[in-house]
């Protein structure tokens, strides 16, 4: 399968990355190259093989329900490009 310019546009939109028209062309070539490589995987017989979930052989650990964090709004906001009155500020969202 190869990726065309339109597909690049579609996935770039999904990934929220602006891509110029000429970059779409280049990327279509590069991404198709990568896909051509990974398509080798289709040749592997994986019938009856369960996908690997983790190389770690253990149960999911759980934590106690005790407050150990939070209460640091100034630290949470300190790196924000824009904040006001304790809130993060972004261009208006239209619903």
């Amino acid at each position: 399968m190869s990726i065309d310019k339109d597909t690049v546009g579609k996935i770039a939109r999904l990934a929220r990355i602006r891509v110029s028209e000429e970059d779409k062309e280049t990327l279509a070539g590069e991404l198709s190259g990568i896909l051509a490589m990974v398509e080798k995987l289709n040749a592997v017989d994986t019938k009856g093989v369960a996908p690997l979930t983790s190389v770690v052989q253990m149960k999911l650990p759980m934590r106690a329900d005790v407050v150990t964090d939070g209460g640091i709004p100034e630290k949470i906001l300190q790196n924000a490009p824009e904040h006001s009155a304790g809130f993060f500020v972004v261009p208006k969202v239209v619903e």
Partner: peptide
């Protein structure tokens, strides 16, 4: 208060 109950996670 806003963002007072937020961990970096």
């Amino acid at each position: 208060a806003p963002n007072a109950q937020v961990s970096p996670v």
